[in-house]
């Protein structure tokens, strides 16, 4: 059966975006291949690594487990939308200063997840951060410096 594409109107990183997608294409696939936002990464394609995490209508989701067509009318934020014209977001700065990335492939997902946590809970405990980030796998760091970076960003954002 030939693939019929569906027209989707959505908002990505604050900008209105329209795209055509086959229903079988995941939001991750659409972001990367159609909209050309390649910051969200594919690590497993089954919702177990979190490298594709995006914020959709105020909740973090694995974009590999969302169909692109489900983005109709949604408000999506990806890693590309975290920094502003004023520069890097405190969470990005904290990741750099705390050496919280090594290879960097998981970093976009961690940043999107961490930012959502800090917006909801400005002063999370170490345990809470570890719980919140359990859906994001990192194989390089052992998480120590990531957790410290999130705590540092929380402190910075509170000041």
């Amino acid at each position: 059966m030939p693939a019929t594409k569906v027209h989707v109107t959505t908002t990505i990183n604050g900008e209105p975006v329209e795209f055509l997608a086959e229903p079988r294409q995941s939001l991750l696939e659409v972001l990367r291949d159609v909209v050309q936002l390649t910051g969200s990464k594919e690590g497993c394609n089954d919702g177990n690594c979190g490298a594709c995490t995006v914020n959709m209508d105020g909740r973090i989701v694995d974009s590999c487990l969302v169909l692109g067509v489900e983005a109709e009318g949604a408000d999506i934020q990806t890693v590309e939308g975290i920094a502003s014209a004023d520069g890097l977001h405190p969470i990005q700065q904290a990741f750099l200063e705390n050496a919280a990335l090594q290879c960097g492939i998981c970093t976009p997902g961690f940043l999107v997840s961490s930012k959502a946590l800090l917006e909801k809970e400005p002063n999370p405990s170490e345990e809470r951060i570890r719980m919140w980030l359990a859906g994001n796998l990192c194989r390089c760091t052992g998480y120590d410096k990531i957790v410290k970076a999130v705590m540092a960003a929380a402190k910075e954002m509170a000041s």
Partner: peptide, 9 residues
């Protein structure tokens, strides 16, 4: 069920 991302859906 799942992590925070999964619980969002």
């Amino acid at each position: 069920i799942g992590g925070i991302q999964i619980q969002g859906r």
